[in-house]
């Protein structure tokens, strides 16, 4: 399930407010985070819009 590859133990680095890290470990994880964020943000936006659609439906 985890997207970290245990066979390549490479140190993680801390990113800071002015720069993102280039993640040396795993492209998988980066992709995974990106996908999760896209999906969850889409859910949030959908619920926001649906709250307005309700009004139309109930009229």
């Amino acid at each position: 399930m985890s997207t970290i590859d245990p066979s390549k133990p490479i140190r993680m680095t801390q990113q800071n407010t002015s720069s993102a890290t280039v993640d040396p470990v795993s492209d998988n994880r980066r992709k995974g985070v990106r996908r999760t964020v896209t999906i969850t943000a889409a859910i949030a936006l959908a619920f926001f819009l649906v709250s307005f659609v309700q009004i139309v439906l109930m009229k």
């Binding site: 985890s2 245990p6 999760t36 964020v37 969850t40």
Partner: peptide, 22 residues
């Protein structure tokens, strides 16, 4: 709250150490 929640979901789903199954 929404940003915090997205961050927590992304962390739990993608950042677990190998062997830390759901």
């Amino acid at each position: 709250s929404i940003m915090g929640a997205i961050n927590i979901i992304a962390t739990i789903l993608n950042m677990r150490a190998p062997g830390m199954e759901l």
